[in-house]
Nucleic acid binder design. Structure first.
Length: 213
DNA sequence: ATATCGATTATCT
DNA sequence: GATAATCGATATG
């Protein structure tokens, strides 16, 4: 199996990690860990990043930054390493991290995670019960699902500093190196649909969409 | 197994 | 008024 769920100490990523092109950040984000902390500041949920998509900013017709700066996409034009959260289809919150230098838009969308700790909390947030290992897929496989599992909302989390462990939501590394990475076109978009900007860990069962590698 | 469809709202034409 | 970086339920092979 290709599970990567050993639990080790997690150290945060610094801003220079994110202040690069979305393609580069997306690829290197695979294998890193998303952390949700409780009111006491301690990690409540952790999950490994196994699928992401890059959005290139004003030059990318599929990016929310394509029309230029608006109140909705403001975070994408700000400094790197901050959460851009958008609400879609009247139902779902999706989480991104801003990339590039301040003034230049760019983001990476989190599409799937592999749960590590706090699985009970995630199940509660999703409103489901885990009666079989196969049910774990439903926690965090897909951008809307992982947003709900981590209780991400625009009012709470948009603009949150994902490089700071003092934030309620942050990104770290436990030293894990992603093995084989695959690249395909992005999912669910109609504009610039052919660009290969989706990155995922080959063979990981939590990757959303197609079962074929 | 794949296909189609309804939900529900911020954002833009 | 239409659309959207989705999901879950239902229908059909």
């Amino acid at each position: 199996m290709c599970l990567h769920n050993e639990t080790r100490a997690i150290s945060h990523l610094d801003r220079t990690f994110f202040a690069r092109s979305p393609r580069r950040v997306a690829r290197e984000l695979l294998g890193k860990v998303l952390v949700r902390t409780g009111d006491d500041g301690k990690p409540r949920m952790t999950a490994r990043i196994v699928e992401v998509e890059a959005y290139l900013g004003e030059q990318d017709p599929a990016s929310h930054a394509y029309p230029g700066p608006t109140s909705r996409n403001a975070v994408m034009f700000g400094p790197a390493g901050f959460a851009y959260v958008y609400f879609i289809y009247g139902n779902h919150y999706c989480l991104n991290v801003s990339c590039e230098q301040e003034g230049r838009a760019g983001a990476v969308l989190f599409r799937a995670l592999e749960p590590l700790t706090g699985i009970e909390e995630m199940a509660q947030a999703r409103g489901i019960t885990i009666s079989h290992p196969r049910d774990l897929i439903k926690l965090t496989s897909g951008p809307g699902r992982l947003g709900e599992a981590f209780r991400v909302t625009r009012s709470r989390d948009n603009g949150c500093d994902l490089t700071s462990p003092a934030s309620g939501l942050w990104i770290g590394t436990d030293g894990f190196r992603a093995p084989t990475i695959r690249v395909t076109p992005r999912i669910g978009i109609t504009k610039a649909a052919e660009k290969r900007l989706r990155y995922f860990i080959a063979g990981n069962p939590f990757v959303s969409g197609r079962k074929t590698l």
